[in-house]
Every structure is written in structure tokens, then in C-alpha cells.
Amino acid sequence: MVSATGTSLLLAVPAAVVGAASMGMASAAQARATKEVEVSRILDPGLLRGLAHRPLWLVGMVATGLGLALQLVALAFGPLLVVQPLLITSLIFAGVISARLERRPLDRVMLAGSGVCIAGLAAFLLVARPSGDSQGFSPQSEPLPLAIALATLTVVALIVALLVRHGSMRVLGLAVATGVLYGVTAGLMKVVAGQAREGIAEPFQHWTLYLVCLVGPLGFLVSQNTFQQGRFLTPALAVITALDPLVGVAIGVWWLGETANANAWALAGEGLAGVVILVGIGLLASRAEHLARAQPGTGVSLNAPEGTA
């Protein structure tokens, strides 16, 4: 007889894997579609108006909705430390689907770099072991230091993207801002969900919902800028995929009163996992630069694909 835990995992694991595949498809489709419209200024909402007329982008939006729904199902039936490493495999799915959409062979170095990033993220979550199911801000929390740090990181990243006209630093700045904004949105949405348990009108009486309505769309717009400006999807998506859960864990601990393993050995392991993530991102970025230099005329242009690898 299958235990209740086993039954839950039988639901959570497939939901997480299919959800990751859906989110990978969404990222690949949206990234491809952004190359089919006129290059937009950063933070220009006109980009979304142009993308709304691209069928591939709309397919990506449907895949996003499906992926989010499946992720919620997975998290409802499975523990975070099982589900989250499966969800972040969306990075590999995105790389594979992106290669197919661009009719180019899958680059093995890119695939290896994605695997390194996923391994680092999974190791971080396993060592940190974030726990708790808080539904609101902890009375003992001091949210200001983390809020200032996240806001500063986002602003600096956007300034870098605005000042650097072309190249990997511009894309890196956009990807960092996207990852932070996505992580903040996820953390705040957990608070909104907790407020909604007290009544459907309860979230409208708190500032959290209105901040989500600002930060969420801003993060999505910056993500589309990131996809359009980047020559290859995988390096930028690796930065976003890494920062999103890391910011989420930070918010859970600092704002919501959740716990994480903080003894000396755990901190050393978490630091090592962070180094692994950085190595993976560095491998992806250097490979992308190599491929771009090896291909003449690889600048992003209207109605032009990202190129071949």
C-alpha cells in the first residue's frame, strides 16, 4: 500500500517536472518572440504591446500560466526541498526548446553550464533547509535592511543596463534586476495568500497587494527586455533562475520569520553552493561570448533570429 507521503510525491514530482518544462517553454517562446519585434528601450511598456501581436509570445503566456498552476500543485503536495530543485530544471528545458525553435544544435557546453547552476541551487536548498509556513510578516522581523539591499541591487542593476549600450554587462544588469523582482514578488505573494485566508477582501486593506501589482508587472517587463537584449537565452535565464529562489529564501527568513540552517558548517556549504552557481553562470556567459564572436553579424535585429550555435 502506498503511504500518504508516497501518494503526495506521486502527485508533486510529475507536476513539478511538467511545470518546469512549461516554464522552460514559456521562456524560450518569449525570448524568441522578442527577437521578432522592434528593439525597445528598457522599461518601455510599448514592447509588451508589440509582443501581444506575436502568436509565439501568446503561446509563451499560456505556457507560463500552465507552469505556475502546476508549480502550485507541486508545492501543495510536496515539500519545498523536493519540489524546488525539480522546478529549477526549467533552465535545461528552456535551453533545449530554445535550440529547437532556432533550428540549431544543442550546445553541450551550455547544457553543462545549466547543469552546474541547477546542482548549485539544489545543493544550496538542501544545505540551507528553509522551513516554516509563515503567512505574514513576523513581528520580530527587521525588514528594512533587506528591503534596502534588494532595492539598491535592483536600481544599480538597472542603471548598469541603461548606461551600457550593448554587450553582456547590459544583459547581466537586466537579468539581475529581473531575478530580484521575481523573488520579491514571490515572497510578497505568499503574504497576500495568507491575508486572503482571512477573507477575500482582506488583501485589499493592506499595502502588500498594491506593491505586488507594481513589482510583478515591472519584473515581467524587465524580463522581456532581458530576453530581447540577450543574444542567447540560457546565460540570462541562469541568473534569473538563481536569484529568484535565493531572494525568496532571504525574504522567508528575514521578513516572514521562517528558519534556515545557519550553523558554521551549513554556512560554509551554502557559500560553496553559491560558488558553484557562479561557476555555472560564468561558464554559460563565456560560452555565449565565444559563440557570438565566432559568428559574424550576430547583432540583434528586427525579425532576425538569435543565430545558430
Rank of each mutant, 00 (worst) to 15 (best):
P139F: 10
G95P: 08
V62Y: 05
L267A: 01
M110F: 13
G257L: 11
T152V: 14
Y182C: 09
L9S: 04
S138C: 13
V247H: 00
A94G: 02
L58N: 09
D44V: 12
V212E: 05
E270C: 03
L267I: 00
I281R: 07
V109C: 10
G194N: 03
A151E: 06
S138R: 11
A147R: 10
S98V: 01
V212A: 10
R287G: 03
A292K: 14
G194L: 02
V212F: 11
R108Q: 15
A273M: 01
A112F: 11
G60Q: 07
L126S: 03
L58Y: 10
P85L: 03
A186K: 08
Q229I: 10
A264H: 10
V275T: 09
P130Y: 08
L256E: 07
I281T: 09
V13E: 06
W265A: 14
K35G: 11
G95C: 04
L106T: 13
A119Q: 04
F204S: 11
I240E: 11
L291P: 03
L211Q: 10
G50W: 14
E306T: 15
V2H: 06
A31E: 08
A273G: 02
R104D: 11
V155D: 06
L163W: 13
L144K: 02
G216T: 12
L51C: 08
R293K: 15
K190D: 03
G194Y: 06
T208I: 12
A123N: 02
A28D: 09
E198L: 14
L68C: 05
V164K: 08
S141M: 12
R129F: 01
V171D: 03
L10I: 10
A193P: 07
P55D: 08
G271H: 07
R287A: 04
V192C: 01
G187E: 02
S138Q: 00
L9Q: 01
A99F: 05
L218G: 09
A266R: 04
A201M: 15
T89C: 00
A119P: 00
T234W: 03
L237H: 05
V212D: 03
Q228H: 12
E198V: 12
E38W: 15
L272E: 08
T89N: 05
M25Y: 03
V275F: 01
L284G: 05
P145W: 09
G19D: 05
G274Y: 10
S3I: 04
L256A: 12
L111P: 07
A123C: 00
G65L: 06
P235R: 05
I118S: 04
A12I: 06
T154P: 02
G78W: 11
E36Y: 15
M61N: 12
L66M: 03
Q71T: 15
P217Y: 06
L278G: 04
V83T: 07
G248M: 14
L218P: 06
Q229T: 08
V156N: 02
L66D: 08
T178Q: 04
G46C: 14
